[in-house]
Design a protein around this nucleic acid. Sequence first.
RNA 1: GGGCCGUUAACUCAGUCGGUAGAGUAUCUGCCUUUUAAGCAGAGAGUCGCUGGUUCGAGUCCAGCACGGCCCA
Length: 509
Amino acid sequence: MGGLSTLSEESQIIKQRKQKALELERQGIELFPNDIRKPERAGAIKKVYGKYDAEALKDVQDPFRVAGRIMALRRFGKAAFASIKDSSGAIQIHVSRDRIGSDNYNIFKKFDIGDIIEVEGRLFRTKTNELTIEADHIRLVTKSMRPLPEKYHGIKDKELRYRRRYEDLVMNDEVLETFRTRARIVQMLRSYFTSNGFLEVETPMMQSIVGGATARPFVTHHNALGIDLFLRIAPELYLKRLLVGGCERVFELNRNFRNEGISIQHNPEFTMLEFYEAYATYEDLMVRTEELFAQIAMDIKGDTKFIYQGNEVDMTPPWRKMTLNQALVEVGGIAEKDLSNRETLLARLMELGVDMPKDEVLGKYLTKLFDLLVEPNLVQPTFITEYPTDISPLARRNAKNPEVTDRFELFITGREIANAFSELNDPRDQKMRFEEQVANRGDDEEIPPEVDYDYIRALEIGMPPAAGEGIGVDRLVMLLTDSASIRDVILFPQLRPLSSKRPDGKGTK
RNA sequence: GGGCCGUUAACUCAGUCGGUAGAGUAUCUGCCUUUUAAGCAGAGAGUCGCUGGUUCGAGUCCAGCACGGCCCA
Protein backbone atom coordinates (compact mmCIF):
# COMPACT_ATOMS: atom_id res chain seq x y z
CA MET A 1 0.00 0.00 0.00
CA GLY A 2 1.39 3.32 -1.10
CA GLY A 3 0.15 4.98 2.07
CA LEU A 4 2.42 2.82 4.16
CA SER A 5 5.61 4.43 2.97
CA THR A 6 7.10 6.42 5.79
CA LEU A 7 7.08 9.87 4.25
CA SER A 8 5.51 10.10 0.84
CA GLU A 9 7.09 13.47 0.23
CA GLU A 10 6.53 13.25 -3.50
CA SER A 11 2.77 13.46 -3.24
CA GLN A 12 1.55 16.55 -5.02
CA ILE A 13 -0.94 17.35 -2.26
CA ILE A 14 1.85 17.64 0.27
CA LYS A 15 3.95 19.74 -2.08
CA GLN A 16 1.02 22.08 -2.62
CA ARG A 17 0.42 22.37 1.08
CA LYS A 18 4.04 23.17 1.80
CA GLN A 19 3.92 25.72 -0.96
CA LYS A 20 0.85 27.37 0.57
CA ALA A 21 2.52 27.37 3.96
CA LEU A 22 5.53 29.16 2.46
CA GLU A 23 3.26 31.77 0.90
CA LEU A 24 1.59 32.40 4.24
CA GLU A 25 4.97 32.69 5.89
CA ARG A 26 6.08 35.22 3.29
CA GLN A 27 3.04 37.29 4.16
CA GLY A 28 4.27 37.36 7.75
CA ILE A 29 1.84 34.74 9.07
CA GLU A 30 3.37 32.56 11.76
CA LEU A 31 2.74 28.90 10.94
CA PHE A 32 3.48 27.61 14.43
CA PRO A 33 2.89 30.43 16.90
CA ASN A 34 3.36 29.84 20.60
CA ASP A 35 1.43 32.71 22.14
CA ILE A 36 -2.08 31.29 22.00
CA ARG A 37 -3.87 31.84 25.27
CA LYS A 38 -5.87 28.98 26.69
CA PRO A 39 -9.07 28.82 24.63
CA GLU A 40 -12.59 27.94 25.67
CA ARG A 41 -13.78 24.46 24.93
CA ALA A 42 -16.25 23.71 22.18
CA GLY A 43 -18.00 21.07 24.24
CA ALA A 44 -18.47 23.41 27.19
CA ILE A 45 -19.94 26.14 24.99
CA LYS A 46 -22.34 23.71 23.39
CA LYS A 47 -23.36 22.32 26.73
CA VAL A 48 -24.43 25.72 28.02
CA TYR A 49 -25.71 27.42 24.86
CA GLY A 50 -27.09 24.34 23.17
CA LYS A 51 -30.32 25.14 25.01
CA TYR A 52 -30.52 28.75 23.74
CA ASP A 53 -32.66 29.49 20.72
CA ALA A 54 -31.81 32.18 18.17
CA GLU A 55 -33.61 34.90 20.14
CA ALA A 56 -31.95 34.01 23.42
CA LEU A 57 -28.50 34.00 21.79
CA LYS A 58 -28.99 37.62 20.69
CA ASP A 59 -28.81 38.61 24.34
CA VAL A 60 -25.50 36.82 24.82
CA GLN A 61 -23.08 39.66 24.19
CA ASP A 62 -19.83 37.94 25.17
CA PRO A 63 -17.62 36.63 22.42
CA PHE A 64 -16.14 33.15 22.72
CA ARG A 65 -12.68 32.11 21.69
CA VAL A 66 -12.03 28.50 20.67
CA ALA A 67 -9.10 26.68 19.12
CA GLY A 68 -9.28 23.43 17.27
CA ARG A 69 -8.66 21.47 14.13
CA ILE A 70 -10.60 22.24 10.97
CA MET A 71 -12.42 18.97 10.30
CA ALA A 72 -14.71 20.20 7.54
CA LEU A 73 -14.72 23.30 5.40
CA ARG A 74 -17.55 24.48 3.18
CA ARG A 75 -16.60 27.59 1.24
CA PHE A 76 -18.85 29.90 -0.75
CA GLY A 77 -16.64 32.49 -2.28
CA LYS A 78 -16.96 35.28 0.25
CA ALA A 79 -18.03 33.24 3.24
CA ALA A 80 -17.54 29.79 4.67
CA PHE A 81 -18.62 27.36 7.33
CA ALA A 82 -16.12 25.18 9.09
CA SER A 83 -16.27 22.58 11.80
CA ILE A 84 -13.64 23.09 14.49
CA LYS A 85 -12.79 20.17 16.75
CA ASP A 86 -11.04 20.22 20.11
CA SER A 87 -10.81 17.40 22.65
CA SER A 88 -14.22 18.27 24.07
CA GLY A 89 -16.09 18.17 20.78
CA ALA A 90 -16.70 20.14 17.63
CA ILE A 91 -18.42 23.45 16.98
CA GLN A 92 -19.33 25.12 13.74
CA ILE A 93 -17.90 28.51 12.84
CA HIS A 94 -18.95 30.96 10.16
CA VAL A 95 -16.38 33.20 8.50
CA SER A 96 -17.42 35.99 6.18
CA ARG A 97 -15.32 38.49 4.29
CA ASP A 98 -17.54 41.40 5.28
CA ARG A 99 -17.01 40.66 8.93
CA ILE A 100 -13.30 39.91 9.15
CA GLY A 101 -12.16 42.13 6.26
CA SER A 102 -10.80 41.12 2.89
CA ASP A 103 -7.14 41.00 4.00
CA ASN A 104 -7.94 38.51 6.72
CA TYR A 105 -10.29 36.66 4.44
CA ASN A 106 -7.57 36.20 1.86
CA ILE A 107 -5.38 34.68 4.56
CA PHE A 108 -8.24 32.43 5.66
CA LYS A 109 -8.56 31.23 2.07
CA LYS A 110 -5.16 29.61 2.45
CA PHE A 111 -6.23 27.59 5.49
CA ASP A 112 -6.77 23.90 4.93
CA ILE A 113 -8.73 21.08 6.46
CA GLY A 114 -6.49 19.73 9.20
CA ASP A 115 -5.08 23.10 10.23
CA ILE A 116 -5.52 24.09 13.85
CA ILE A 117 -7.00 27.58 14.10
CA GLU A 118 -8.20 30.00 16.72
CA VAL A 119 -11.57 31.69 16.27
CA GLU A 120 -13.26 34.37 18.31
CA GLY A 121 -16.80 35.62 17.90
CA ARG A 122 -20.37 35.67 19.08
CA LEU A 123 -22.81 32.80 19.00
CA PHE A 124 -25.77 32.59 16.64
CA ARG A 125 -28.00 30.01 15.09
CA THR A 126 -28.01 29.28 11.37
CA LYS A 127 -31.11 28.74 9.25
CA THR A 128 -30.80 25.07 9.98
CA ASN A 129 -30.60 25.92 13.69
CA GLU A 130 -26.99 24.92 14.27
CA LEU A 131 -25.16 26.70 17.08
CA THR A 132 -22.36 28.58 15.33
CA ILE A 133 -19.64 31.09 16.15
CA GLU A 134 -19.65 34.12 13.86
CA ALA A 135 -15.93 34.81 13.52
CA ASP A 136 -14.68 38.31 14.34
CA HIS A 137 -11.08 37.15 14.52
CA ILE A 138 -9.45 34.11 13.06
CA ARG A 139 -5.86 33.01 13.36
CA LEU A 140 -3.68 30.14 12.32
CA VAL A 141 -2.45 28.13 15.31
CA THR A 142 -0.71 25.18 13.66
CA LYS A 143 -0.29 24.57 9.96
CA SER A 144 -0.98 21.02 8.80
CA MET A 145 1.36 19.89 6.05
CA ARG A 146 -0.43 16.67 5.22
CA PRO A 147 -4.01 15.97 4.12
CA LEU A 148 -6.37 14.23 6.53
CA PRO A 149 -8.07 11.00 5.45
CA GLU A 150 -11.37 11.07 3.62
CA LYS A 151 -13.94 13.06 5.56
CA TYR A 152 -16.81 10.61 5.37
CA HIS A 153 -15.25 7.17 5.64
CA GLY A 154 -12.31 8.40 7.67
CA ILE A 155 -9.44 5.96 8.17
CA LYS A 156 -10.65 2.37 8.13
CA ASP A 157 -7.65 0.25 7.30
CA LYS A 158 -6.82 -1.41 10.62
CA GLU A 159 -3.13 -1.48 9.93
CA LEU A 160 -3.07 2.25 9.27
CA ARG A 161 -5.21 2.90 12.34
CA TYR A 162 -2.80 1.04 14.62
CA ARG A 163 0.36 2.34 13.01
CA ARG A 164 -0.86 5.93 12.92
CA ARG A 165 -2.95 6.14 16.03
CA TYR A 166 -2.65 9.93 15.97
CA GLU A 167 -4.56 10.00 12.69
CA ASP A 168 -7.04 7.43 13.95
CA LEU A 169 -7.71 9.66 16.97
CA VAL A 170 -8.21 12.71 14.76
CA MET A 171 -10.66 10.93 12.48
CA ASN A 172 -12.50 8.45 14.70
CA ASP A 173 -14.00 10.01 17.81
CA GLU A 174 -14.88 6.64 19.35
CA VAL A 175 -11.17 5.86 19.74
CA LEU A 176 -10.66 8.65 22.25
CA GLU A 177 -13.89 7.56 23.94
CA THR A 178 -12.49 4.04 24.38
CA PHE A 179 -9.27 5.33 25.90
CA ARG A 180 -11.15 7.69 28.19
CA THR A 181 -13.09 4.68 29.43
CA ARG A 182 -9.84 2.83 29.86
CA ALA A 183 -8.51 5.67 31.99
CA ARG A 184 -11.65 5.61 34.12
CA ILE A 185 -11.37 1.87 34.66
CA VAL A 186 -7.72 2.16 35.66
CA GLN A 187 -8.62 4.97 38.00
CA MET A 188 -11.41 2.95 39.58
CA LEU A 189 -9.16 -0.06 40.07
CA ARG A 190 -6.59 2.14 41.73
CA SER A 191 -9.05 3.88 43.99
CA TYR A 192 -10.78 0.61 44.94
CA PHE A 193 -7.55 -0.88 46.22
CA THR A 194 -6.23 2.31 47.72
CA SER A 195 -9.44 2.93 49.63
CA ASN A 196 -9.43 -0.65 50.89
CA GLY A 197 -6.07 -0.14 52.53
CA PHE A 198 -3.83 -1.58 49.81
CA LEU A 199 -0.46 0.04 49.30
CA GLU A 200 0.46 0.77 45.71
CA VAL A 201 4.05 -0.21 44.90
CA GLU A 202 6.37 -0.52 41.94
CA THR A 203 8.59 -3.59 41.74
CA PRO A 204 11.30 -4.40 39.21
CA MET A 205 10.48 -4.57 35.53
CA MET A 206 13.98 -5.89 34.91
CA GLN A 207 14.66 -9.06 36.83
CA SER A 208 17.75 -11.24 36.94
CA ILE A 209 15.65 -14.34 37.63
CA VAL A 210 12.22 -14.59 36.00
CA GLY A 211 9.30 -15.95 37.94
CA GLY A 212 5.69 -15.61 38.90
CA ALA A 213 4.22 -17.09 35.74
CA THR A 214 4.81 -19.59 32.97
CA ALA A 215 5.91 -17.63 29.92
CA ARG A 216 8.91 -16.90 27.74
CA PRO A 217 10.60 -13.69 28.81
CA PHE A 218 12.27 -10.97 26.80
CA VAL A 219 15.99 -10.83 27.47
CA THR A 220 18.08 -7.69 27.62
CA HIS A 221 21.58 -6.96 28.76
CA HIS A 222 22.97 -4.63 31.39
CA ASN A 223 26.36 -3.43 30.27
CA ALA A 224 27.76 -2.11 33.54
CA LEU A 225 26.76 -5.20 35.51
CA GLY A 226 27.69 -7.46 32.62
CA ILE A 227 24.59 -9.59 33.07
CA ASP A 228 21.47 -10.51 31.17
CA LEU A 229 18.23 -9.22 32.60
CA PHE A 230 14.70 -10.34 31.86
CA LEU A 231 11.70 -8.11 31.41
CA ARG A 232 9.28 -9.32 33.98
CA ILE A 233 6.53 -11.75 33.07
CA ALA A 234 4.87 -11.06 36.45
CA PRO A 235 5.58 -9.06 39.61
CA GLU A 236 4.36 -11.86 41.89
CA LEU A 237 7.53 -12.92 43.65
CA TYR A 238 8.43 -9.34 44.53
CA LEU A 239 4.97 -8.49 45.81
CA LYS A 240 5.06 -11.53 48.06
CA ARG A 241 8.45 -10.47 49.39
CA LEU A 242 6.60 -7.34 50.45
CA LEU A 243 4.08 -9.48 52.32
CA VAL A 244 7.05 -10.95 54.17
CA GLY A 245 8.20 -7.43 54.88
CA GLY A 246 4.93 -6.59 56.55
CA CYS A 247 2.97 -4.92 53.75
CA GLU A 248 -0.20 -6.83 54.45
CA ARG A 249 -2.12 -5.32 51.57
CA VAL A 250 -0.21 -4.38 48.43
CA PHE A 251 -0.95 -3.97 44.77
CA GLU A 252 0.83 -3.06 41.59
CA LEU A 253 -0.80 -1.83 38.40
CA ASN A 254 1.71 -1.99 35.60
CA ARG A 255 3.06 -3.65 32.51
CA ASN A 256 4.17 -7.26 32.07
CA PHE A 257 6.10 -8.52 29.07
CA ARG A 258 5.76 -11.94 27.49
CA ASN A 259 7.74 -13.05 24.49
CA GLU A 260 4.92 -14.93 22.83
CA GLY A 261 2.55 -14.73 19.91
CA ILE A 262 0.48 -11.68 19.12
CA SER A 263 -3.24 -12.25 18.73
CA ILE A 264 -6.62 -10.67 19.12
CA GLN A 265 -6.15 -11.03 22.89
CA HIS A 266 -2.36 -10.99 23.31
CA ASN A 267 0.06 -8.08 23.09
CA PRO A 268 3.70 -8.61 24.10
CA GLU A 269 3.35 -5.91 26.72
CA PHE A 270 0.10 -5.82 28.60
CA THR A 271 -1.24 -4.29 31.77
CA MET A 272 -1.85 -6.37 34.84
CA LEU A 273 -3.10 -5.52 38.25
CA GLU A 274 -1.77 -7.81 40.95
CA PHE A 275 -2.85 -7.51 44.55
CA TYR A 276 -2.00 -9.48 47.69
CA GLU A 277 -3.95 -9.60 50.88
CA ALA A 278 -2.75 -11.17 54.10
CA TYR A 279 -5.22 -13.16 56.20
CA ALA A 280 -7.44 -13.74 53.19
CA THR A 281 -8.07 -16.85 51.12
CA TYR A 282 -8.83 -17.33 47.45
CA GLU A 283 -12.49 -17.57 48.47
CA ASP A 284 -12.34 -14.07 49.96
CA LEU A 285 -10.87 -12.87 46.69
CA MET A 286 -13.82 -14.27 44.77
CA VAL A 287 -16.08 -12.00 46.77
CA ARG A 288 -13.74 -9.07 46.27
CA THR A 289 -13.56 -9.68 42.54
CA GLU A 290 -17.33 -9.87 42.21
CA GLU A 291 -17.71 -6.67 44.20
CA LEU A 292 -14.99 -4.83 42.27
CA PHE A 293 -16.15 -5.86 38.80
CA ALA A 294 -19.82 -5.23 39.54
CA GLN A 295 -18.91 -1.78 40.81
CA ILE A 296 -16.88 -0.95 37.71
CA ALA A 297 -19.61 -2.28 35.41
CA MET A 298 -22.19 -0.15 37.20
CA ASP A 299 -20.00 2.89 36.79
CA ILE A 300 -19.07 2.35 33.15
CA LYS A 301 -22.23 0.69 31.84
CA GLY A 302 -24.77 1.84 34.41
CA ASP A 303 -25.75 -1.79 34.90
CA THR A 304 -24.21 -5.13 35.79
CA LYS A 305 -25.80 -6.50 32.61
CA PHE A 306 -24.51 -5.29 29.28
CA ILE A 307 -23.81 -6.40 25.73
CA TYR A 308 -20.37 -7.55 24.62
CA GLN A 309 -19.99 -8.25 20.89
CA GLY A 310 -23.64 -9.13 20.58
CA ASN A 311 -23.91 -11.31 23.71
CA GLU A 312 -25.40 -10.24 27.01
CA VAL A 313 -22.99 -10.50 29.91
CA ASP A 314 -24.46 -10.53 33.39
CA MET A 315 -21.95 -9.56 36.05
CA THR A 316 -24.45 -9.46 38.89
CA PRO A 317 -22.90 -11.34 41.84
CA PRO A 318 -22.67 -14.09 42.83
CA TRP A 319 -21.05 -15.74 39.84
CA ARG A 320 -21.03 -19.35 38.80
CA LYS A 321 -18.38 -21.57 40.39
CA MET A 322 -17.13 -24.88 39.06
CA THR A 323 -14.11 -27.01 39.66
CA LEU A 324 -11.81 -27.63 36.74
CA ASN A 325 -12.90 -31.27 36.63
CA GLN A 326 -16.57 -30.38 36.79
CA ALA A 327 -16.12 -27.97 33.93
CA LEU A 328 -14.29 -30.56 31.85
CA VAL A 329 -17.12 -33.04 32.40
CA GLU A 330 -20.13 -30.76 32.24
CA VAL A 331 -19.01 -28.25 29.62
CA GLY A 332 -16.17 -30.10 27.92
CA GLY A 333 -17.91 -33.44 27.61
CA ILE A 334 -15.04 -35.47 29.08
CA ALA A 335 -16.11 -38.64 30.85
CA GLU A 336 -15.50 -38.42 34.57
CA LYS A 337 -13.59 -41.71 34.63
CA ASP A 338 -11.19 -40.35 31.97
CA LEU A 339 -10.06 -37.37 34.02
CA SER A 340 -7.09 -39.25 35.41
CA ASN A 341 -6.49 -41.45 32.37
CA ARG A 342 -3.46 -40.10 30.53
CA GLU A 343 -4.05 -42.24 27.45
CA THR A 344 -7.64 -41.17 26.80
CA LEU A 345 -6.79 -37.52 27.53
CA LEU A 346 -3.92 -37.63 25.06
CA ALA A 347 -6.09 -39.36 22.50
CA ARG A 348 -8.77 -36.69 22.89
CA LEU A 349 -6.11 -34.01 22.43
CA MET A 350 -4.88 -35.71 19.29
CA GLU A 351 -8.45 -35.70 17.97
CA LEU A 352 -8.48 -31.96 18.54
CA GLY A 353 -5.28 -31.59 16.57
CA VAL A 354 -2.94 -31.06 19.52
CA ASP A 355 0.17 -33.17 19.73
CA MET A 356 1.53 -33.05 23.27
CA PRO A 357 4.48 -34.99 24.70
CA LYS A 358 3.55 -38.21 26.52
CA ASP A 359 5.49 -37.35 29.65
CA GLU A 360 3.76 -34.08 30.59
CA VAL A 361 2.17 -33.73 34.01
CA LEU A 362 -1.52 -34.58 34.04
CA GLY A 363 -2.50 -30.99 34.79
CA LYS A 364 -1.11 -29.86 31.42
CA TYR A 365 -3.41 -32.20 29.57
CA LEU A 366 -6.39 -31.15 31.63
CA THR A 367 -5.81 -27.42 31.19
CA LYS A 368 -5.11 -27.81 27.48
CA LEU A 369 -8.41 -29.63 27.07
CA PHE A 370 -10.03 -26.94 29.17
CA ASP A 371 -8.61 -24.22 26.89
CA LEU A 372 -10.06 -25.94 23.85
CA LEU A 373 -13.34 -27.36 25.06
CA VAL A 374 -14.46 -25.23 27.98
CA GLU A 375 -12.95 -21.75 27.96
CA PRO A 376 -14.64 -20.48 24.76
CA ASN A 377 -18.01 -21.49 26.22
CA LEU A 378 -17.67 -19.61 29.49
CA VAL A 379 -19.46 -16.44 28.42
CA GLN A 380 -20.98 -15.51 31.77
CA PRO A 381 -18.55 -14.81 34.63
CA THR A 382 -17.37 -18.16 35.98
CA PHE A 383 -14.83 -19.05 38.64
CA ILE A 384 -13.00 -22.26 37.87
CA THR A 385 -11.39 -23.78 40.97
CA GLU A 386 -9.25 -26.73 42.06
CA TYR A 387 -6.40 -26.40 39.61
CA PRO A 388 -3.91 -29.28 39.84
CA THR A 389 -0.92 -28.64 42.05
CA ASP A 390 1.49 -29.79 39.34
CA ILE A 391 0.69 -26.71 37.23
CA SER A 392 0.30 -24.24 40.12
CA PRO A 393 3.78 -23.97 41.62
CA LEU A 394 3.06 -20.88 43.71
CA ALA A 395 -0.36 -21.83 45.06
CA ARG A 396 -1.24 -23.38 48.39
CA ARG A 397 -2.35 -27.00 48.38
CA ASN A 398 -5.94 -27.72 49.29
CA ALA A 399 -6.14 -28.94 52.87
CA LYS A 400 -8.31 -31.94 51.99
CA ASN A 401 -6.78 -32.82 48.64
CA PRO A 402 -3.10 -31.90 48.24
CA GLU A 403 -3.27 -32.79 44.53
CA VAL A 404 -5.19 -29.58 43.86
CA THR A 405 -4.64 -26.00 44.96
CA ASP A 406 -6.78 -23.30 46.51
CA ARG A 407 -6.92 -21.41 43.27
CA PHE A 408 -9.38 -19.95 40.80
CA GLU A 409 -9.31 -18.48 37.36
CA LEU A 410 -12.07 -16.16 36.25
CA PHE A 411 -13.51 -16.44 32.75
CA ILE A 412 -15.82 -13.98 31.03
CA THR A 413 -16.82 -14.00 27.35
CA GLY A 414 -14.64 -17.03 26.74
CA ARG A 415 -11.50 -15.37 28.02
CA GLU A 416 -9.38 -15.60 31.13
CA ILE A 417 -9.66 -12.30 32.97
CA ALA A 418 -8.15 -13.10 36.37
CA ASN A 419 -6.10 -15.72 38.17
CA ALA A 420 -5.92 -15.98 41.96
CA PHE A 421 -4.90 -18.29 44.74
CA SER A 422 -4.16 -18.70 48.37
CA GLU A 423 -0.42 -18.28 48.49
CA LEU A 424 1.98 -21.05 49.25
CA ASN A 425 3.96 -19.83 52.26
CA ASP A 426 5.69 -23.03 53.36
CA PRO A 427 9.30 -22.53 52.25
CA ARG A 428 10.00 -26.27 52.29
CA ASP A 429 7.17 -27.08 49.89
CA GLN A 430 8.02 -24.05 47.72
CA LYS A 431 11.68 -25.07 47.49
CA MET A 432 10.72 -28.59 46.53
CA ARG A 433 8.36 -27.41 43.82
CA PHE A 434 10.85 -24.94 42.37
CA GLU A 435 13.63 -27.48 42.29
CA GLU A 436 11.40 -30.06 40.69
CA GLN A 437 10.33 -27.53 38.09
CA VAL A 438 13.89 -26.60 37.20
CA ALA A 439 14.97 -30.25 37.15
CA ASN A 440 12.20 -31.18 34.70
CA ARG A 441 12.58 -28.03 32.65
CA GLY A 442 14.52 -29.48 29.76
CA ASP A 443 14.80 -26.65 27.25
CA ASP A 444 11.35 -25.26 27.95
CA GLU A 445 11.91 -21.52 27.82
CA GLU A 446 8.65 -20.94 29.65
CA ILE A 447 10.12 -22.38 32.83
CA PRO A 448 12.73 -20.33 34.69
CA PRO A 449 16.16 -21.95 34.37
CA GLU A 450 17.13 -21.35 37.97
CA VAL A 451 15.52 -21.37 41.38
CA ASP A 452 14.95 -18.02 43.02
CA TYR A 453 16.57 -18.96 46.32
CA ASP A 454 16.23 -15.47 47.68
CA TYR A 455 12.48 -15.90 47.40
CA ILE A 456 12.75 -19.14 49.39
CA ARG A 457 14.84 -17.23 51.92
CA ALA A 458 12.09 -14.64 52.18
CA LEU A 459 9.53 -17.37 52.85
CA GLU A 460 11.85 -18.72 55.54
CA ILE A 461 11.65 -15.35 57.26
CA GLY A 462 7.92 -15.96 57.19
CA MET A 463 5.09 -14.81 54.93
CA PRO A 464 1.71 -14.52 56.59
CA PRO A 465 -1.11 -16.57 55.09
CA ALA A 466 -2.39 -14.57 52.16
CA ALA A 467 -4.17 -14.66 48.87
CA GLY A 468 -3.25 -12.87 45.71
CA GLU A 469 -4.77 -12.17 42.33
CA GLY A 470 -3.80 -10.90 38.91
CA ILE A 471 -6.35 -9.10 36.78
CA GLY A 472 -5.81 -8.62 33.05
CA VAL A 473 -6.59 -4.96 32.71
CA ASP A 474 -6.60 -4.85 28.90
CA ARG A 475 -9.10 -7.67 28.73
CA LEU A 476 -11.28 -6.03 31.36
CA VAL A 477 -11.21 -2.86 29.29
CA MET A 478 -12.10 -4.82 26.14
CA LEU A 479 -15.12 -6.23 27.93
CA LEU A 480 -16.36 -2.85 29.12
CA THR A 481 -15.70 -0.97 25.88
CA ASP A 482 -17.14 -3.72 23.66
CA SER A 483 -13.79 -4.00 21.87
CA ALA A 484 -13.15 -7.11 19.78
CA SER A 485 -9.37 -6.87 19.83
CA ILE A 486 -6.80 -6.07 22.50
CA ARG A 487 -5.29 -3.71 19.91
CA ASP A 488 -8.36 -1.56 20.24
CA VAL A 489 -7.63 -0.87 23.91
CA ILE A 490 -3.85 -0.38 23.60
CA LEU A 491 -2.92 2.96 22.06
CA PHE A 492 0.16 1.72 20.25
CA PRO A 493 -0.13 -2.05 19.85
CA GLN A 494 2.93 -3.97 18.75
CA LEU A 495 3.20 -4.37 14.98
CA ARG A 496 6.05 -5.53 12.84
CA PRO A 497 8.10 -2.51 11.79
CA LEU A 498 7.59 -1.55 8.16
CA SER A 499 11.21 -1.49 7.13
CA SER A 500 13.32 -3.30 9.63
CA LYS A 501 16.48 -4.58 8.00
CA ARG A 502 17.96 -7.84 9.11
CA PRO A 503 21.68 -8.51 8.75
CA ASP A 504 20.85 -11.13 6.10
CA GLY A 505 18.87 -8.53 4.22
CA LYS A 506 15.86 -10.81 4.06
CA GLY A 507 13.31 -8.51 5.60
CA THR A 508 11.89 -8.93 9.03
CA LYS A 509 10.98 -12.49 9.56
C1' G B 1 3.89 -22.75 12.57
C1' G B 2 -0.80 -23.69 9.25
C1' G B 3 -5.35 -22.04 6.49
C1' C B 4 -8.34 -18.24 4.29
C1' C B 5 -8.67 -13.13 2.85
C1' G B 6 -6.51 -8.41 1.75
C1' U B 7 -2.58 -4.77 -0.25
C1' U B 8 -4.71 -0.11 -6.87
C1' A B 9 -4.13 8.09 -6.13
C1' A B 10 -3.31 11.35 0.40
C1' C B 11 -8.17 8.49 2.19
C1' U B 12 -12.56 5.08 0.95
C1' C B 13 -13.08 1.81 -2.93
C1' A B 14 -14.24 -0.12 -8.39
C1' G B 15 -11.38 -2.47 -12.19
C1' U B 16 -15.48 -7.75 -16.64
C1' C B 17 -12.58 -12.61 -20.69
C1' G B 18 -5.13 -10.73 -20.01
C1' G B 19 -5.32 -5.44 -24.34
C1' U B 20 -1.71 -0.64 -21.19
C1' A B 21 -5.81 2.99 -14.91
C1' G B 22 -11.33 4.47 -12.88
C1' A B 23 -14.97 6.82 -9.20
C1' G B 24 -16.03 9.56 -4.72
C1' U B 25 -13.58 12.44 -1.06
C1' A B 26 -9.23 15.46 -0.70
C1' U B 27 -6.08 18.97 -3.82
C1' C B 28 -5.73 22.98 -7.71
C1' U B 29 -8.57 26.78 -11.06
C1' G B 30 -13.25 29.42 -11.89
C1' C B 31 -18.44 30.67 -9.97
C1' C B 32 -21.05 30.99 -5.40
C1' U B 33 -22.46 35.08 1.74
C1' U B 34 -26.76 30.06 5.88
C1' U B 35 -23.71 25.26 4.54
C1' U B 36 -23.30 20.72 7.31
C1' A B 37 -21.01 13.96 3.06
C1' A B 38 -22.82 22.03 0.35
C1' G B 39 -23.41 22.75 -5.08
C1' C B 40 -21.89 23.67 -10.38
C1' A B 41 -17.84 23.66 -14.28
C1' G B 42 -12.87 22.29 -15.34
C1' A B 43 -7.79 20.32 -14.16
C1' G B 44 -3.84 17.73 -11.98
C1' A B 45 -2.63 13.48 -9.15
C1' G B 46 -0.65 6.13 -9.70
C1' U B 47 6.51 2.14 -8.84
C1' C B 48 -1.53 -1.26 -9.20
C1' G B 49 2.95 -4.08 -1.93
C1' C B 50 7.93 -6.28 -3.79
C1' U B 51 10.73 -9.82 -6.96
C1' G B 52 10.61 -13.22 -10.66
C1' G B 53 7.87 -16.19 -14.37
C1' U B 54 4.18 -17.22 -18.44
C1' U B 55 2.63 -14.13 -22.66
C1' C B 56 3.14 -10.22 -28.52
C1' G B 57 0.96 -7.89 -24.10
C1' A B 58 -0.01 -8.72 -16.77
C1' G B 59 -3.46 -4.53 -11.84
C1' U B 60 -5.65 -9.16 -13.82
C1' C B 61 -2.63 -15.71 -14.61
C1' C B 62 1.59 -18.54 -11.88
C1' A B 63 5.63 -18.76 -8.05
C1' G B 64 8.25 -16.68 -4.11
C1' C B 65 8.62 -12.83 -0.54
C1' A B 66 6.86 -8.60 2.67
C1' C B 67 3.11 -6.37 5.65
C1' G B 68 -1.77 -6.70 7.65
C1' G B 69 -6.65 -8.91 9.02
C1' C B 70 -9.49 -13.19 10.59
C1' C B 71 -9.42 -18.28 12.04
C1' C B 72 -6.62 -22.49 13.80
C1' A B 73 -2.20 -24.37 16.45
